[in-house]
Design a protein around this nucleic acid. Sequence first.
DNA 1: TTATTTTTGCGTAAATTATACGCATACGCA
DNA 2: TGCGTATGCGTATAATTTACGCAAAAATAA
Lengths: 230, 230
Amino acid sequence: MELKQNIKIAVDAIVFGYADNKLNVLLIKQKYGVLKNKWALVGGFVKDDETLNDAVNRELHEEAGIKVNYLEQLYTFGDDLDRDPRFRVISVAYFALVNSTKLVLKADTDAEDARWFPLDELPALAFDHQSILQTAQKRLQSKLTYQPVGFDLLPKEFLFSELETLYCTILEKEIDRRNFRKKILSFGIVEETEKFGNKKSGRPAKLFKFNGLKYNKLAQEGFLFDINFA
Amino acid sequence: MELKQNIKIAVDAIVFGYADNKLNVLLIKQKYGVLKNKWALVGGFVKDDETLNDAVNRELHEEAGIKVNYLEQLYTFGDDLDRDPRFRVISVAYFALVNSTKLVLKADTDAEDARWFPLDELPALAFDHQSILQTAQKRLQSKLTYQPVGFDLLPKEFLFSELETLYCTILEKEIDRRNFRKKILSFGIVEETEKFGNKKSGRPAKLFKFNGLKYNKLAQEGFLFDINFA
DNA sequence: TTATTTTTGCGTAAATTATACGCATACGCA
DNA sequence: TGCGTATGCGTATAATTTACGCAAAAATAA
């Protein structure tokens, strides 16, 4: 077959983190190339002998030095022929969650700088990364309502109030505290620990932890986690 | 930049049709190449100057001569380095619905034959197309429960019993006829026509039609079409 | 010390929605 | 005319969601 295709294939990762009641996204500033001094998503070209999955994890490691908590394919952007001014690039975007934005971001190989940006304080982004980010945010919002991915954004042990604030922040709406607690507890996928978290004031609250095994079991049985509130 | 990437990018389409209370899939048999005499999904390589979307529509036209009713990106398969024995191929799979499997399938350019296969009578498929098809079937099942895509598989005017049977067939479960009707009607997105459909026996039933405008309006307002039954 | 504020944890009534049916109607057919 | 079959409407009951009340436990202010 004399197929001569001149399209490059890349992967990009939208990494969400959560800290101080804010949703953050990981961005990097490239040292070289057209992206010099512009903020962009973590990403790069796929090597001939690596899977898409390996490519994303490699870029995450090389450009920011992190391992993510949750990773799934988001969408493949290939309908804009001029996404990249250099040549035709099709990008497979991945959606990732990490449970601490306090983790060390090492700016290694290609990246000059790697930083967390709150979603409401974004700098100008390279290429079509702004639009990819919006797609990712929508995915996070909808995912949160039928899959307990919120735990991937929190530390292993957390307060119920933290989980609740996370839901309110991401879904951008008010949720009744008592009904939220009841619903989440009814699933049986969070467990009480003996420890207490410390806040400045108010009644001390127990720390809870997510039971991944229980979740997997229920998910396998086809249980639906309908986490919607009026 | 001295980037030398040797990966080909293809598109594949999983086209679902519905006829005689069965869910069908469109498959083609190639005339030339490694796929000679093997059944496969509609698909092919993306041209340098066409969008992914254009590529799918072109292949659908060239290989089967059809225009689909519903089309959306499904998933990008690129984690198996040996999907294609010839060289590394990453395939962006699309999910499509057509409202009549009676439509003329012209076997044109590359395809020797194009045919509808009931999901329970599939031939051996090329490459990893079997697994792609399974992903598509899951997508169809879940999509049916929160987006009224069932209408894209039926003719413009249909009987309620036909719509109900379609849901039962795709979701592979029994649904109470009366509750199903009540729920669908409650959304206000199907309208009664003056016409009657003809069946062999039983009370004559009115033909209904889907109101796409009304659906778009509700969808935009964020209305949730929860089409789940016990 | 005592009152006030804040946050937690449990509970409950009302509204809404889902589920499981009953049954009269309207045809074809013997 | 009676029977089989499919349609269209209705309704009681169960389950779930929603909207709150309120006491307990701590920090903080008076």
